[in-house]
């Protein structure tokens, strides 16, 4: 019965991450919400690995890859935010509207 608890918790974290991603005005908070969503996905993978594949824990290997890629993406994303801040002097997502039609 506990697999469902972990999956529901992961779904809740994912939905909170989506809420933060769409409603944040600070660009750094958007990146933090993306990390929340990636952690929710990792929790899902780990729960499946423990309850459905307890011998060859392939879900844990997948989770390790997701952790490494999320760290790389956080570094590049924050470098981009820093570069935008130097050019525009703000991190307000409402002001980054050059691509708006």
């Amino acid at each position: 019965m506990q697999l469902q608890y972990f999956l529901i918790l992961a779904a809740a974290l994912f939905c909170i991450g989506i809420f933060g991603l769409i409603t944040s005005r600070n660009a750094v908070r958007v990146l933090m919400s993306i990390e929340l969503m990636l952690n929710a996905v990792n929790l899902n993978l780990m729960a499946f690995s423990n309850y459905l594949d307890a011998q060859d824990i392939k879900g844990q290997v997948f989770t390790t890859f997701v952790i490494a890629i999320a760290a790389a993406e956080a570094a590049v994303g924050l470098a981009i935010v820093l570069a935008i801040y130097r050019n525009r002097d703000t991190v307000d997502m409402e002001q980054f509207n050059l691509l708006k039609w």
Partner: peptide
Amino acid sequence: LYLLLNADFV
């Protein structure tokens, strides 16, 4: 939570 899922390394 990962510790509860038998995953010490992760």
